[in-house]
Amino acid sequence: MTIFRFALKRILRDKTNVLFLTLFPIAAIFLPTAEDGWPLLPLGYQYFGILLLFVSIRLTSIMIEDRQKGVVKRLAAAPVSHFNYLWQNLLAFSVIMIIQIIIIISGGYAYGHELYEPWNLTILYLVFMFTAISISLAWNSLYRSKESSFLIFMAVIVLMALLGGILFPVEMMPVVFERIAVIFPTYWLSEGIEWIVFGEDRGDFLFINGVLLLYALFFLIIGSIRRIS
């Protein structure tokens, strides 16, 4: 578990990271509930998916840094398998994000927000977190420098949030957009949130999480290919 420990240390050594990782979920707890009936959950919880995407791209950037600095090359010569390197890093990212999810859910509960079904919401966020990590992993594998990867992903996040129905209800969009929305993982997140508020059929919730997990698996496979040079 050396790599895991080391990944945690590397992330938490950066002061901006610590600030970014703690301050934002806490701030999200205190965002108000929308007055005109949409978003259904308090704003902080509606936008938490966007935050998860941001956090995941920021955390996975240490892997791109490894590639930039040639650490991956050295690892290839060391008696550590790529698989070990990958899962220990991913575990470190997940642990940090799980803590964030626990903070926001328990904080919201203590603050007195109406969260409908906190446990299911936690599950939804957890599943979306895996999707977010694997998307950013796959995204990072397309780039050589972490700056350009981060900057362009920022734009992609905004687009995904917009077209996936996190910033706007999908029903408000023209029919074409409504159909396209299905391909964005954020769409499934907002569907999941809708289920948590209105849903009755357990199967729907399982289906939503299944789609998100499929996305996670798909991007994980793309992102986990070793790129030494």
């Binding site: 734009a155 905004v158 687009l159 917009l162 077209l163 706007f168 969009m173 023209p174």
Partner: peptide
């Protein structure tokens, strides 16, 4: 990004 955002917002 602004062009895409503006386009989407204007259509919506």
């Amino acid at each position: 990004v602004p062009i895409i955002l503006i386009t989407v917002f204007s259509i919506i």
